[in-house]
Amino acid sequence: MSQGRAARLAPVIAMAERAEREAAVQLGRVQGQLRQAEVKLGQLEHYRGDYQQQWISEGQRGVSGQWLMNYQRFLAQLETAIGQQRQSVDWHRANLDKVRDTWQQRYARLEGLRKLVQRYLDEARLLEDKREQKLLDELAQRLSSRASS
């Protein structure tokens, strides 16, 4: 009987496995997107550092007013891009947390179902062992009563 219950859960486990696998793939995809966003942010910040170093070098030689205005305008645009990329990184981190939670829930459900099936199989094995022992006991009793008669 318990083996039958375990067998009836096979399609449910297959669906849970599929859902867990899909969530794991999605988790990997989102982790990759976060890494890309962090790399882009790092590149922008590095570029800003290089650009600021250029300001120091050029400033020591003396710069025109036009060069200074262009530098400030470009630096402001760069700061805006960095701010937007930071927001993108924050969004990707939040999304990763959400996707990770989904995967953890699906994984926990799958593990719970697997444990339930194992319990059903253990129960079936125990019942079968008891039946077998009962038959052996009955057989031993019959043999014993025949031998004594």
Rank of each mutant, 00 (worst) to 15 (best):
E138Y: 09
L121Q: 11
A14L: 11
T80S: 13
L27K: 10
D50W: 01
V39K: 02
E111C: 03
G32W: 00
G28T: 04
E20I: 02
G83I: 01
Q53C: 01
L27M: 02
G59D: 04
Y71E: 00
D97H: 15
Q3N: 10
L139C: 02
Q36H: 14
Q85V: 08
R142K: 10
R125E: 09
Q133Y: 11
G4I: 13
Q104E: 08
D137A: 13
D90S: 13
S148D: 13
G83K: 01
R86A: 06
R18N: 10
R131E: 05
L9N: 11
E132C: 01
A24R: 11
V12T: 14
E20N: 04
L78P: 05
E58G: 03
G4E: 14
S57A: 13
W91L: 09
Q43H: 07
L96R: 14
R114I: 12
H46K: 09
A19P: 09
L110R: 14
D129K: 02
L78W: 08
W55D: 02
Y71C: 07
S64A: 05
R125T: 03
E58W: 10
I13E: 15
L113P: 00
Y107K: 12
Y120L: 10
Q87A: 15
K98H: 11
R100G: 04
V89E: 06
R114Y: 09
G28V: 06
L113N: 11
M1E: 03
K40S: 05
S145Y: 07
V12N: 11
A16T: 05
R109S: 09
D50H: 00
V63M: 15
A19N: 13
R146C: 04
L113Q: 09
R146W: 06
I56H: 07
R119V: 14
Q72S: 02
E128L: 01
Q84K: 06
Q66P: 01
I82F: 03
D90M: 12
E79S: 15
Q84L: 09
E138F: 07
G28R: 08
A7V: 07
V25A: 00
G32V: 07
R109V: 07
V39I: 07
R35Y: 07
